[in-house]
């Protein structure tokens, strides 16, 4: 049933090409994305990656700005807990972003639009899987209209 339902949504938003911004930490997830590239694992072109030194560099402002400027989804990817290149960075990410997740839910941004995941440098497969998964969910949800700045047109 779910397959049929999702088809209907996609039809409704004909021509909808979601835009997803992914913040990837330099040491694990960005390298994981590189590995997905070297292994030629396909994921949709809707995902655009911004490199940050550590996932803890990502300020809640960056996420909000992306939503405001018309992104339909935001992904933050870091090293697995315990594997952070900077020892404890991803623990901060985990705490900060779970708060932000609550806030986003409160202001009406669907949960599936904001994803935090841990992808190591050897997990090219997982990188592609996570990207495909988020895109499929955002596709079902349709364009993000909640936070979008009305003056900002895409």
């Amino acid at each position: 049933m779910s397959v049929i339902a999702s088809d209907a949504v996609i039809k409704k938003e004909a021509g909808f090409e979601p835009l997803i911004v992914a913040f990837c930490c330099n040491w694990c997830s960005y390298a994981g994305a590189d590995l997905a590239g070297t292994s030629r694992l396909n994921y949709p072109a809707n995902i655009k990656i911004i490199r940050v030194p550590c996932s803890c560099r990502v300020n809640a402002n960056f996420v909000l700005r992306a939503f405001q400027r018309g992104a339909d989804g935001v992904i933050i990817a870091g090293c697995h807990p315990g594997d952070c290149h900077y020892m404890t960075g991803n623990y901060y990410t985990r705490r900060r972003m779970s708060l932000l997740k609550n806030l986003l839910e409160f202001i009406g941004i669907e949960e599936a639009r904001f994803k935090i995941d841990w992808i190591s440098a050897s997990e090219g497969n997982k990188f592609a899987e996570v990207m495909n998964d988020v895109l499929a969910k955002v596709h079902q949800l349709g364009p993000n209209r909640k936070l979008r700045d009305s003056r900002w047109r895409r």
């Binding site: 835009l19 911004v21 560099r57 402002n61 960056f62 700005r65 992306a66 400027r69």
Partner: peptide
């Protein structure tokens, strides 16, 4: 953070979300 300043990352976000 030098080299990854707030302004720079926001500029990247803006450029991507254009």
């Amino acid at each position: 953070l030098k080299g990854f300043s707030n302004q720079q990352i926001l500029a990247e976000v803006d450029a991507i979300c254009r």
